[in-house]
C-alpha cells in the first residue's frame, strides 16, 4: 500500500505542514515574492540560486525544503528513486505576463524571464538543488483533481520510483497556493493511505483553514 507521508501548504497568508504548526504567518501582508524570500531567510538555507527563480519555482523549492526537514528518510533514496509530479491550471501565466511586458513595453525581451515561461522548469530547479535524476511530469488541469494525483502516483510507484513528490501550485495575480505532498511506496503503517479520498480530504481541510484572514 502506498502512503501519503507528509504535506505542506503555502499561501501568501501562511505556511502550514501536516504537523499542524503555523510556520510562517504573513501578518505584514507581503506580496508573494517578498514573502517567499522572507521564508527562505527564516529557514536559513544557503542556496543563492533561489533569488533568480520565478515565484513558482521559489514556492516549489521552499515546499520541498520543508518536506525534507520533516522527512529525514527522503535523503535515503537513491538519486533516481524520487519522481516529481506537479500540476496547476495556469501554467506559467505570471511569468508569461512579465516576459510579454519585457518585449511589448520595455522593448528588451528578457532571457532570464523567458526560461521560466515553462512551468516544468520548477522541477528542473528541484532536480538541480537535490541532485535528483528521476521521472518528472508537469500537467495542466482545469482544476485540482485528487483522482489524477492518486492515479499517477500509484502508477509511477509501481515500477519507476519509490517516492513521488507532488504539488498543486498556482501563482497568479492576487492568488498564491502551493499544496505539496510526499507519496511513498514503503510508508509507515500509521501513514495515510494514498487514495483519491485521502488527498481530497487533506486538500479540502487545508483550503478551509487558509480561508479566514488573520485579524
Amino acid at each position: 500500500m502506498n502512503h501519503l507521508s507528509s504535506y505542506c501548504h503555502i499561501s501568501t497568508k501562511e505556511i502550514v505542514t501536516d504537523k499542524g504548526a503555523l510556520l510562517f504567518d504573513n501578518t505584514e501582508g507581503l506580496e508573494v515574492n517578498d514573502f517567499l524570500k522572507t521564508v527562505y531567510k527564516k529557514l536559513a538555507i544557503d542556496y543563492p540560486k533561489f533569488y533568480k527563480m520565478d515565484s513558482l519555482s521559489k514556492a516549489a523549492f521552499l515546499g520541498v525544503e520543508l518536506l525534507k526537514k520533516e522527512n529525514a528518510a527522503l535523503a535515503e533514496y537513491a538519486d533516481d528513486e524520487i519522481a516529481l509530479l506537479f500540476a496547476n491550471s495556469n501554467a506559467s501565466e505570471d511569468t508569461d505576463k512579465k516576459f510579454v511586458n519585457s518585449y511589448a513595453e520595455e522593448h528588451a525581451p528578457s532571457p532570464s524571464l523567458f526560461v521560466y515561461t515553462l512551468p516544468s522548469i520548477l522541477m528542473g530547479e528541484l532536480a538541480i538543488r537535490n541532485k535528483w535524476y528521476g521521472e518528472s511530469l508537469f500537467v495542466i488541469l482545469q482544476k485540482f483533481d485528487a483522482a489524477f494525483f492518486a492515479d499517477y502516483c500509484n502508477m509511477i510507484l509501481l515500477r519507476n520510483a519509490k517516492a513521488c513528490i507532488c504539488g498543486w501550485i498556482e501563482i497568479t495575480e492576487g492568488k498564491t497556493e502551493a499544496f505539496i505532498f510526499l507519496a511513498e511506496k514503503n510508508g509507515n503503517e500509521n501513514n495515510t493511505p494514498l487514495t483519491k479520498q485521502t488527498i481530497e480530504k487533506i486538500y479540502k481541510t487545508i483550503m478551509k483553514q487558509s480561508r479566514p484572514s488573520k485579524v
Binding site: A127, I128, K131, E135, S136, L137, N160
Partner: peptide
C-alpha cells in the same frame, strides 16, 4: 518509456 533529469542546468 521513461524520463530522467540532468540535474545540471535549467537552460
Amino acid at each position: 518509456g521513461t524520463s530522467g533529469n540532468d540535474a545540471n542546468h535549467i537552460s
